[in-house]
């Protein structure tokens, strides 16, 4: 992959939920520069420009990461830990998307500096609205700090 600008990085292993998120973003014209990886390792390769993402520049950070909690191999919380542990990536806003309502996950995410936590509603219209709200907030309302 070339060195393109990315607004939203989606980390989601469920292909259908990924498509739902993508369609929801499209519905609200927020899908520009959207990139989707299917597991935690790919997400970290992407962010740290390793492997198939070797040509990317690390400075081209996504403006927000939508991170699924339950991922194969590396969990969402593990990925978050590594993002927060590195000077170059620790400022990227991360919003957790999950079907889990387990309180311990929420607390652990908050301790790791999670910027938001969205429990995926069962209902698509509510889901689309949640996606729109967080996309709108992080891409439109929230201005990244000037360098």
């Amino acid at each position: 992959m070339s060195d393109q600008k990315v607004n939203i990085l989606l980390v989601e292993d469920n292909p259908h939920h990924g498509e739902l998120a993508m369609r929801a973003l499209k519905m609200h014209n927020l899908a520009e520069n959207f990139f989707w990886v299917k597991n935690g390792e790919d997400a970290l390769d992407f962010l740290f420009c390793r492997g198939e993402f070797g040509l990317r520049k690390i400075e081209n950070k996504p403006r927000v990461i939508f991170l699924d909690l339950k991922l194969p191999k590396k969990s969402g919380l593990d990925v978050l830990k590594e993002i927060r542990a590195d000077e170059r990536t620790k400022d990227i806003p991360v919003v957790m998307l999950t079907t889990s309502r387990e309180e311990k996950d929420i607390v652990e995410g908050q301790n790791l500096g999670l910027n938001g936590y969205v429990v995926k509603p069962d209902d698509f219209e509510k889901f689309a609205e949640a996606i729109r709200n967080i996309g709108y907030y992080w891409l439109v309302l929230n201005q990244p700090p000037k360098r």
Partner: peptide
């Protein structure tokens, strides 16, 4: 109950969303 909250809800959202599409 954890599995109910996570694994059963996930396909529900998909069915709901795709029937909408």
């Amino acid at each position: 109950s954890y599995s109910v909250s996570h694994d059963l809800r996930a396909p529900l959202l998909t069915i709901n969303g795709f029937s909408h599409f």
